[in-house]
Simulated scan of single mutants.
Amino acid sequence: MPRPSRYAPDTLPHPPSWRDDAACTEIDTPVFFSPNRSDIAYVKTVCISCPVRPDCLTHALTHREDYGVWGGLDEDERNTLLRDAHRAAERQRRLQREKERKADATAAA
C-alpha cells in the first residue's frame, strides 16, 4: 500500500492570506521590481491605500526581501528601517548590561 502524502492535494482550498486582500493584486508584478523611479513612485501610491500594507511590510522584513517595493517601502527604505532597529536593539542591550554591572557592583560592595 502506498504511503499517503503529507502534502495537501491541489484540489483543497488554500488558507486565506494577506495577499488575497492586497490592493496590488491586479497590477503587473514586474512594476514592483522596476529600477525606474516613476514606477516606484506609482507603486507606492497604490500601497498608501492598501489595507494589508503592515502585513506586506512585515513579510518583507521577516523574509528579508532584497528587491522591490513591499509595504510601501523600497529596498533602501527597508534597509534603513532594519539598520535603525538593529542599532536600537544593540543600544538597549548595552544599557541593560551596564545596569546589570552596576547592580552587581552594588551587591558586591
Results as ranks from 00 to 15, higher is better:
M1G: 07
P2L: 13
P2K: 08
P4C: 04
P4E: 08
S5D: 15
Y7P: 01
A8M: 07
P9L: 10
D10C: 04
D10F: 05
D10G: 12
P13S: 10
H14Q: 15
H14W: 08
P15L: 03
P15K: 07
P16A: 12
S17V: 01
S17R: 09
W18A: 09
W18S: 04
R19S: 04
D20V: 00
D21K: 01
A22L: 06
A22V: 08
C24R: 00
C24M: 07
E26Y: 06
I27G: 00
I27W: 01
D28A: 15
T29I: 03
T29N: 01
V31P: 00
F32Y: 13
S34G: 01
S34W: 01
N36A: 11
S38C: 07
S38T: 15
I40S: 03
A41C: 05
A41V: 08
Y42R: 06
Y42P: 01
Y42K: 02
K44G: 05
K44N: 02
T45A: 09
V46R: 14
C47G: 04
I48S: 11
I48P: 02
S49N: 14
V52F: 00
R53T: 11
P54N: 09
P54M: 08
P54H: 13
L57A: 14
H59P: 06
L61T: 10
T62P: 02
T62V: 11
H63L: 15
R64S: 15
Y67T: 03
Y67Q: 08
Y67L: 09
V69G: 00
V69Y: 00
L73G: 02
L73E: 07
D76N: 02
E77L: 04
R78P: 10
N79G: 07
N79C: 03
T80Y: 04
L81W: 03
R83L: 10
D84S: 10
H86D: 09
H86L: 07
R87P: 01
R87A: 13
A88Y: 03
A89L: 13
A89W: 06
E90G: 06
R91M: 07
Q92P: 01
Q92S: 13
R93P: 04
R94V: 05
L95M: 13
Q96A: 13
E98V: 05
K99R: 13
E100F: 06
E100Q: 14
R101F: 02
K102R: 15
D104C: 03
A105Y: 08
T106W: 05
A108R: 15
A108T: 12
A109F: 12
